[in-house]
């Protein structure tokens, strides 16, 4: 027999928790839980990423959306006005400033809108001139009508803002996007005087486009005359018909008139009983009271000249 001579235990057995127990006690997630969650995330990503449109996540998304969608709409409707409140609280100064800004913008836009029609028309004129150049095959020097001769002088002339500096000479053909305007009488260095075809002293060789019959187109004088142009065919037996187009016949060397420029169309036909000839009244294509942009037929290759095929 031997006595237990060991000293009595003064302390209870030391209770050592395993690391896992300690972690669980402290509320730590176990390693396996963490691993499972991370793997779950990665698996979800891979599945969603690789399966494209037929992702199994899509129906889940749909269900969550069905539940949360109305909630979102409700919250948005309820809190929207509250969020928008700061936008409504603004000082008088800020409002005045904004008002001034907007007023300035309105003014600018109105001005632009007023000019829009004018700009459109100018654009159309340029396009017409380009088209005319292409159609007739002549190079055109653009110019603007800057003044009309007074009616008291009984001549129908206009001044254009291009002259000898732009290569213009007397007896050049002037036309615009619609047709023949006239010819140049005189030039200065920066201006030129144009005799309109409606002038009483103007005679243009004209040709009916349909049957190539030649004739003379004579001006009757006056912009506002009812019958500004008259056509007398050289062949008395040919009867001009209403709606036929008359173009220039063309002079030798292209002066004063080049050939093939439309003048107008036959509007009325009269028979001169005494002479036994026909007289046709032409309706000119050009509106002579609102001439603005015109082109002068010049040799090709000059500075600022509209060549055939431009604007296309």
């Amino acid at each position: 027999m031997s006595l237990d001579t060991r000293p009595p235990r003064q302390h209870p057995v030391r209770q050592v928790a395993t690391p896992r127990e300690r972690q669980a006690e402290r509320g730590m997630p176990s390693r396996s839980l963490l691993l499972a969650l991370v793997l779950a995330c990665i698996a979800l990503m891979v599945v969603d990423r690789t399966s494209g449109d037929e992702s199994p996540v899509a129906p889940v998304r749909r269900v969550v959306g069905e539940v949360l969608g109305p909630a979102q709409a409700g919250v948005s409707a309820v809190l929207g006005p509250v969020v928008a409140l700061p936008g409504n609280l603004r000082t008088n100064d800020a409002l005045r400033e904004e008002n001034a800004d907007l007023q300035a913008r309105v003014d600018a836009l109105e001005q632009e809108a007023r000019k829009a029609g004018y700009d459109d028309n100018r654009m159309q004129e340029w396009a017409g001139l380009g088209q005319m150049s292409t159609g007739t095959g002549y190079a055109l020097a653009p110019a603007r009508v800057i003044s009309y001769g007074a009616a008291q002088s009984f001549s129908n002339t206009v001044t254009i803002d291009a002259g000898s500096d732009s290569g213009l000479r007397p007896d050049m053909t002037v036309l615009n996007g619609d047709g023949l305007v006239g010819r140049i009488l005189e030039v200065t260095s920066h201006t030129a005087t144009v005799l309109l075809v409606v002038d009483a002293s103007s005679t243009v060789g004209g040709r009916v486009g349909d049957n190539m019959e030649n004739g003379m187109v004579e001006g009757q004088g006056g912009f506002a005359a009812d019958e500004p142009l008259e056509l007398r065919l050289l062949d008395d037996t040919v009867l001009p018909e209403k709606g036929q187009t008359v173009v220039t016949w063309g002079s030798e060397g292209g002066a004063p008139y080049v050939s093939g420029v439309p003048i107008g169309e036959v509007d009325k036909v009269f028979e001169d009983l005494r002479l036994g000839t026909y007289r046709a009244v032409l309706e000119p294509f050009v509106d002579f009271t609102s001439l603005d942009l015109v082109g002068v037929v010049v040799p090709s290759g000059g500075d600022g000249v509209i060549e055939p095929g431009a604007f296309q």
């Binding site: 991370v38 995330c41 990665i42 979800l44 990503m45 990423r49 949360l68």
Partner: peptide
């Protein structure tokens, strides 16, 4: 999964985890 989300599912799950 909530409506406006269109990215690959699981990304926010991982991040917030």
């Amino acid at each position: 999964l909530a409506p406006p989300a269109d990215h690959t599912a699981g990304r926010w799950a991982l991040a917030l985890m």
